[in-house]
Structure formats: structure tokens, C-alpha cells
């Protein structure tokens, strides 16, 4: 009954290609390319999160930078407190900082999820254009909060002295850090695929295609969508904490509307709703940025033109061009 999807070999190719870049970089002694590949993996992870809401659920969130930034600030703030040994809070219980990724990740994921739960519960009462604008507005709210709250750098952002640690692995080595990010990306893709094919994923996709039909069989769209929105935010938040560690720097730009827009672009460039769409999109995007950015500092002009071309003429994104239409079981 299970047929091989046309895109499956392409997916393996993409996953292999991404893994190959840093290895080749090592061989060529060009460590910069490892950073480039890490950037691809992290942005892909953030976009896999968005793809859950946007691709499967049809929820056009223009505010996912909020979760990306929350993840980033979680890593930044916890590690700052770990390095200056001042507690994060003293009341009602004393909580200190941490530079352990295994602590930072769950905190980033939970915080992103909680914020998504509150903003999602309000935004999902609406739909369509309202939803787009409201998610954008909530992200902007958090952006302005970050710029006006001086304790963690305000507009200037926050530097992380050292990359946070992972037990038993030296994260300061670029290849090690890449492999951590890559492993998390693969795990997220696996989770995405399971969710897509599950009962929950079926209901979520049905909510996008025809919410009246979903309700008529007795499934309320709202809780399904809210759960998807929260899950989606959690993945993007995790990516944000990695992004902070990659740059060893967090700033409000991670929370900006441009970031939200870029995350959508990653999903669309690759192919909306497809498992590896975000991976293809992130690889393309970082590559554009790198190649076009090498030619001209106005590379975003060309990005804009390419994007416009994709929207107007190549709606399935890269995977749509390579593998044809999405097929469901």
C-alpha cells in the first residue's frame, strides 16, 4: 500500500549533501563552509517548525521570529547568568543560569511553547488575513520589548562569551557543533513525518483543506490548530537557541519581522508542506546569500526578484519543480 514518494530519493540526496558540505570543508581546510552548513541546518530546523503550522496546517504565521528569538534569548540569558554566576531570579525560588545545552534546550522549547499557547489562543480565534497580521503584531510586541528592556542588551543585543556546552562533546569545534545541529534537524524531520502521517496530522491537514468538513465529522479545528501552532513554535524555538550558539550573539533582529518573513521564504522556496521543503529552502537561501552576497551587497534585491518569480511562476518551490505535486496516502 505504501508507495515510494517521488521526492524520497531527492530527500536522501539533500540530507547527504548537507552532511557532505562540512566534511568537504574539513578536507579542503575551509572551516568557514562548516559555519555555512551549520547555518543551513539551523535555519532548516526553524523552518521545519514553521512548516508544521504553515505547510500542514495552513496557518500563515508571520510571527515565528518571536519563537526563534525566544529560543535565542533563552540561550543567551541562561549562559550569561552561568558565566557571571548571578542567579536569574531569587524569588520565589532561586534559579541560576546554565551553560549546558541539555538544560537550555528544554527551557527554550517550553518557553516558546508557552508563548505560542497564549498568542495562538488569541490569534486562532481569527483566520485568514487577520491571523497573518495578528501573529505579526505579537512578534513585533516581543521585538519591542526586547529592544526596550536594557538588562540583556536592549537594542545592542547580548554576546555569549563561550558556546554553550554539551556533555561529552567539545562544542567549540565547528564540526561537532554542526553534527549536533544536524542530528536535531534529522530528529525534527522524523518527528514531522510521523506527525504528518498520524491521526493528528490527518486532522491538521484536513483543517487546512476544508475546516467545515473536519467539524462535520466531529473534530473541532481549534484545538488541533492550537496544538500544531505550539509544536511548531517549540521546534522554531529550539532552532533559535542553536542559532544563538552558532553566532555566540543574540539581538532583537532574531525577533524582527524580516526574520519572520525569511522563515516563510525558506518554507516556500523549498516547497510548502513537503518534508524536506524547509531543508531545500534553507540550503538555497544560505547559498543565495553567500553567492549573491559575494557579488553585490545588494543581494536582497535579487532575492526579492527570485522570490517574486517563484511566487508568480513556480508555486511548488524547488521540490515542486523536481518532484511534482504533493501526494497523500
Amino acid at each position: 500500500m505504501k508507495r515510494m514518494r517521488a521526492e524520497t530519493p531527492i530527500n536522501f540526496l539533500l540530507a547527504g549533501l548537507l552532511l557532505l558540505v562540512p566534511l568537504a570543508a574539513l578536507a579542503l581546510e575551509e572551516p568557514f563552509y562548516i559555519t555555512l552548513a551549520t547555518r543551513m541546518a539551523i535555519l532548516a530546523l526553524a523552518a521545519v517548525g514553521l512548516n508544521l503550522a504553515l505547510g500542514l496546517g495552513g496557518l500563515v504565521s508571520f510571527g515565528h521570529a518571536a519563537f526563534f528569538g525566544i529560543g535565542g534569548y533563552t540561550a543567551g540569558i541562561l549562559s550569561t547568568h552561568a558565566s557571571n554566576a548571578q542567579p536569574l531570579m531569587t524569588w520565589p525560588i532561586e534559579i541560576g543560569g546554565s551553560d549546558n545545552m541539555l538544560v537550555i534546550w528544554p527551557v527554550a522549547v517550553v518557553l516558546s511553547g508557552l508563548v505560542a499557547l497564549v498568542t495562538g489562543a488569541i490569534s486562532l480565534r481569527t483566520s485568514g488575513v487577520y491571523f497573518i497580521m495578528i501573529t505579526l503584531a505579537f512578534a513585533q510586541m516581543i521585538y519591542y520589548f526586547a529592544t526596550s528592556w536594557p538588562a540583556y542588551g536592549g537594542e545592542d543585543g547580548l554576546s555569549l562569551g563561550l558556546r554553550n556546552a554539551f556533555p561529552g562533546i567539545n562544542t567549540a569545534l565547528p564540526l561537532n557543533f554542526f553534527l549536533i545541529c544536524y542530528a536535531l534537524l534529522i530528529a525534527a524531520l522524523y518527528l514531522f513525518a510521523r506527525i504528518r502521517d498520524s491521526r493528528f496530522g490527518t486532522a491538521l491537514q484536513a483543517a487546512r483543506q476544508n475546516q467545515v468538513r473536519l467539524a462535520a465529522v466531529g473534530i473541532s479545528p481549534f484545538p488541533i490548530r492550537l496544538a500544531a501552532f505550539v509544536l511548531s513554535a517549540m521546534m522554531t524555538g529550539l532552532a533559535g537557541s542553536l542559532f544563538a550558539d552558532l553566532n555566540r550573539f543574540v539581538s532583537p533582529s532574531m525577533l524582527s519581522w524580516q526574520m519572520s518573513g525569511e522563515l516563510i521564504v525558506l518554507v516556500i522556496l523549498g516547497g510548502t508542506g513537503r518534508l524536506f521543503g524547509p531543508v531545500a529552502g534553507a540550503m538555497l537561501f544560505v547559498l543565495f546569500e553567500f553567492i549573491l552576497g559575494g557579488f553585490t551587497e545588494r543581494w536582497q534585491l535579487f532575492l526579492g526578484l527570485i522570490l517574486l518569480g517563484v511566487v508568480l511562476f513556480a508555486r511548488g518551490g524547488l521540490l515542486g519543480l523536481l518532484a511534482g505535486k504533493v501526494r497523500h496516502g
Binding site: L54, V60, F62, G128, V129, I132, G261, I264, V265, I268, T272, R298, Q300, L301, L303, G304, L305, L307, L308, V310, V311, L312, R315
Partner: peptide, 22 residues
Amino acid sequence: DHLDQVLATFALILIFSEGTRW
């Protein structure tokens, strides 16, 4: 759909902004 509209006009922002800078 609104997603396409968002993307296309987002692309227009990039074009306008960089064009103006140019």
C-alpha cells in the same frame, strides 16, 4: 491565497528597499 500575496509583497519590500538604497 493570502500566503502568495504575503510572499510576493514581501519580495516587493526587498526590491523597493534595496532599490532605494541603490
